[in-house]
């Protein structure tokens, strides 16, 4: 009886272990670049930062430039990425736009856009704010499903 229990435990571990490893691999987190253009009275204040939520994505991809400008009164974002791998890798990106109070604008209106980065390639992605109330943006980048 004890022997059967031991065998069953072994089988359970053998089944569960690969499943646990596989589920750990599929992370929806990636890297996030952000920029804000706030009119503070004494001119436009510009701030930007990059957050790494998934070291695996950050090992292969780097945000090298975040450029923001107003065209008319619409916030435009240009984000430049560089692949640190020599192989081809698939990613997705999504822009999110925020007003001056930090409230997200049209949260459901932006979809994940797939893209491919070839070895050591540099690519720039442009996003336009949904409307003139946008003063900040974020770009989220993650591995393609």
């Amino acid at each position: 009886m004890k022997r059967i229990q031991t065998i069953l435990s072994g089988v359970a571990i053998l089944i569960a272990l690969p499943l646990m490893i596989l589920s750990g691999c599929s992370s929806s987190a990636g890297i996030q670049g952000s920029s804000a253009m706030m009119d503070e009275g004494a001119g436009i204040q510009h701030s930007e930062y990059v957050i790494v939520n998934n070291p695996k994505v950050a090992r292969g991809l780097q945000i090298v430039d975040i450029a923001t400008q107003f065209k008319g009164n619409l916030l435009i974002a240009d984000v430049t990425l560089v692949s640190k791998y020599s192989d081809t890798e698939g990613y997705q990106y999504k822009f999110a736009w925020f007003d001056g109070d930090g409230i997200e604008i049209d949260a459901e209106g932006n979809a994940w856009t797939p893209f491919t980065m070839y070895g050591n390639e540099t690519k720039t992605f442009r996003g336009a704010a949904p409307n003139p109330s946008a003063k900040q943006f974020k770009i989220n980048i993650r591995l393609r499903d």
Binding site: L74, I76, A111, T113, R126, G127, A128
Partner: peptide, 17 residues
Amino acid sequence: ATDLQQIAAKMTTSLLT
């Protein structure tokens, strides 16, 4: 659907800028 969303986003951004 992803193709539709990509096209809409690209065309809108391009026209507005």
